[in-house]
Design a protein around this nucleic acid. Structure first.
Lengths: 218, 218, 218, 218
DNA sequence: GATGAATGAGCTTTCATTCAT
DNA sequence: AATGAATGAAAGCTCATTCAT
C-alpha cells in the first residue's frame, strides 16, 4: 500500500519551485541541487518525476503557457462582444506578463533553447501557444471585419502581426529593464493599429480619441 | 623577428570565427577549443585578446550590431527624402536579418545572457543600438509629421513601437522556422501602421494601394 | 488472509530471475529494479529475502554451483566403474557449461568479485565446489591407480590439475566466442592426459586409439 | 614552444599508476581521482591521454600483455633448442604471473569486461596474445615432433590445450589464495603432458624421472 | 509480507582558464 | 606573442538501500 500522495500534485510542486529557481538564475546557472533544496526534497526525487533537467525546463514552460492560455480563454469567453474581447486579450497579456515579470527573461532562454535542441517537443510547445493565439486572433479579426469595425484584411496575417507586436513590445519592456508601463505600451500599440484598420465609419467615430492617444504616447 | 601582424586585424579574425561557432552551436555549447580550432590558432591565444569567453561573446554581438548600425546609417544617409528612408530602414532590417539567419538564435541567447549577467556592458551594448534606432525613428517620424504625411504622434513612443514590432516579427520568423518571407511580413506591417498614421490627405492618396495590401496579407 | 506462499519458493524464484538478469547484463550493469521487474515483484521485496545486491549475487552463484554438483554427483553415482565415471564427469561438465553458455561470463565476474570483497562467503563458496571436485577426482584417481589403469600418481595434484584444465578449457571456449566444440576440446584433453597417466599394460591396449585422437586434434 | 615533455613517457607513467590502483582495488572500485592522486597529477590530465576510464583499463591490460609477450619472445629466442624453449616458456609464465601476483585478479575482471562491452578492442587485444601464444606453441610442437621427442599430434589443438592448462592452473592458484607454489604446479603439469606426448624412444629415456614427479605431486 | 517513493553519496567527464616555455 | 599541457571545480545523473504505509 503506497503512501497516499498525489503524484501529480508533487510534480506540480516541483515545477513550481523549479520555475522560481530557473527564473532567478536562468537555465544554465540553475543547478538541480538548488531546485531540490528549494523544493525541500532530495536531488534524486526530481529524477523520479523528470528524466532530465531539460524535461523539467520544458515542464516549467508548459505550465506557464498553459496558465496563460487558460487565462485568456477564460477572459475572452466572458466577453459579450468583439470589441471587449480585444480589450480582454490585451489586458490578459499585460496582466500575465507583469505578474510574472521575474520569469520573463526565462522566455528568451526557452526560445533560444528550443531553436538549438534536438528535442522537437520544445518547438512543438511553442507552436501550440502560437497556434492558439493565432486562431483566437483570426476569429476576432473576422468578427471585427464582419461587424463593420475593421476594413477588409487578411485575418491570418493580421493575427500574426498582432502576436508579433505583443512579443516585440514585451521584449522591449524586458530589455529596457521594465522602465515603462507595459499597459501603456499595449494601449498605444492598439491605437496605432486601430487607426490603421478601422473602417471609414468607425474611424469617423473614434478618430479623435485615438488621435489624442497617439499624441500622448506612452 | 616576429611577424608583422596587426593586432586589431587578428582580433577581428577571432571574433569572426567565434561568431561562426557561437552561431552554429550556441553560447554554452561552443567551446573555446572549437573556436581556436576554427580560427586556426592556439587555445591560449584567444586569451591574449579576450579576458573571458563572456567578453568574446560580447565582442561578437558588438561586431554584429555595429555592422547593422553602419548599414542602416549608410542607406538612410543616401536617401533624398523621408519616405524613402522608411523604405531603406525596412529593407536594411530585412536584408540584414536574412543574411544572418543562421546567427539569429544567438540574438536570443545574447539578450537572455544580458539580463542575467552582472556585467553591465551587455545591457549597455543593447541599449546603444536601441538608442540608435530610436533616435533614427524619432527623427524620421518628426520629418514625416512635419511633411504632412503623418498625423500628430508621440515620436518616441512611435519609434519604440516600430522597433518593437520589428523585433517581434523577427522573433516570429525565427520561431516558426523562417517559414514565411520576412520581407512580406515587414511590408504588411508597414501597411497596417502606415494606414494608422497617415494624415487625411496622404491617406486619400494611398488608401487604395495599402488597402489591397491588407487584403493580400503576406 | 495472506496468500499462502512458500518463502523458500519465492526466494528461489527471485534467484532464478536474478540469474537471468545478471547473466545478460553482468553484475555491475544489473540494477535491482531490473531484477524486480523481471521477477514481477516490488523492488523492496527483494530486500525481504536478500540483505544486499551482493548477497543476491552470491545466492545466484550458489544455486548454479549446487546444481552443478548435484548433476555430477548423480551421474557419477550411476556409473558402475571408474572408467565410466571419468566419462560421466567430462560429459557433465560439457553439458553443464554448454547449457549455461550465456551465463558463463558471469563466472569470471563472480571469481573476480570473490577475490576483492571483504565478505569471506564468496571464496568459501568457491572452495566448497573445488573441494567437492577435488575429492571426487582424488577418489577416482585412486580407483584408477588401484585398478591398474593408471600409473602411480599423487592423487591430489592430479585431481587439481584435472580441475584446472577444465577451467582453462572453459575459459578459452568463452574468450574465443565459443568458436570450437567444447566436447571435442574435453575429449582431446582426456586423450593427452590419458596417454600420460596410463600404466604400461593399459597403454598397450589403448595407445592406438588415443594416438589417432591426438593426430585428429579437435 | 611547448614544454619539452615526452607525451609517450607521461602516458606510460599514467598507465603504470593506473595498473597499481586497478590491481589493488579492481576496476569498478578504482576511481579516476585515486589514479590521479597516485600518479600525482590532476584528474583532468588523465583525460588528456585517455578518452575514458575504459580506455585506460584497456591500456593497462595492453601494457601488461605486451610485456608478457616481449618477455617470452626474448627468452625463447635465446634458447638453442626446442626442449629448452619449453622450459623457457614455462619459466616465463611462472615468473611473470608471480611477479605480478597482485595484479592477477585484474585479469579476470578484464576478461569479464571484454565479454560484456560493446568495444571490440577488448576481445581483439585478448585474441592478439592468444594468437601469439598459439603460434609459438604450434611451432614448438612441430619442432618437438620433427625432432622425434613427441609423437604425432595436432599442433594447433595441443598448443591451445597447453595455453588453456596454463590459464586454468593460474586461475586455481589465484582462487586458492596462492596457497601452492606456482612453479611446482607448472612442472607437474609438464610431467603429465610430457608422459602423454613423448614418443616411445624419448619415453624410455625420461619415464623414470617423470614418473617420480608424478608420484611427488606438487 | 509487500511496496515504491524518497534519498544523497558518489561517480565520470567536461572545459574555461592558467602559465611555463 | 603564441601555445597547449595541466588543472580541478563543478554538475548532471544513477541506483542501492531505507522505511512509512
Amino acid at each position: 500500500m503506497p503512501a497516499i500522495v498525489d503524484k501529480q500534485a508533487k510534480r506540480r510542486d516541483i515545477v513550481k519551485h523549479a520555475a522560481d529557481v530557473f527564473a532567478r538564475s536562468g537555465y544554465h546557472e540553475s543547478k538541480m541541487q538548488d531546485i531540490a533544496t528549494v523544493a525541500d526534497i532530495g536531488k534524486g526525487t526530481i529524477y523520479e518525476y523528470f528524466r532530465t533537467k531539460e524535461q523539467l525546463f520544458l515542464a516549467v514552460y508548459d505550465a506557464w503557457m498553459s496558465d496563460y492560455e487558460s487565462l485568456i480563454r477564460e477572459r475572452v469567453d466572458a466577453c459579450p462582444d468583439a470589441m471587449s474581447k480585444v480589450d480582454a486579450i490585451r489586458d490578459s497579456a499585460v496582466e500575465f506578463y507583469e505578474s510574472r515579470a521575474e520569469q520573463a527573461p526565462l522566455l528568451l532562454e526557452f526560445w533560444a533553447h528550443a531553436l538549438r535542441t534536438d528535442n522537437p517537443a520544445f518547438l512543438e510547445r511553442i507552436t501550440r501557444t502560437r497556434t492558439f493565439l493565432r486562431d483566437l486572433g483570426m476569429n476576432l479579426t473576422r468578427e471585427l471585419v464582419d461587424a463593420g469595425w475593421f476594413t477588409e484584411v487578411d485575418a491570418r496575417a493580421f493575427a500574426d502581426l498582432e502576436a508579433g507586436i505583443s512579443d516585440g513590445v514585451f521584449l522591449a519592456w524586458v530589455l529596457e529593464g521594465r522602465s515603462f508601463p507595459l499597459d501603456k505600451a499595449f494601449t498605444f500599440r492598439q491605437s496605432v493599429i486601430g487607426l490603421g484598420l478601422l473602417a471609414p465609419d468607425a474611424r469617423a467615430l473614434l478618430s479623435e480619441k485615438l488621435g489624442s492617444k497617439l499624441k500622448r504616447g506612452m
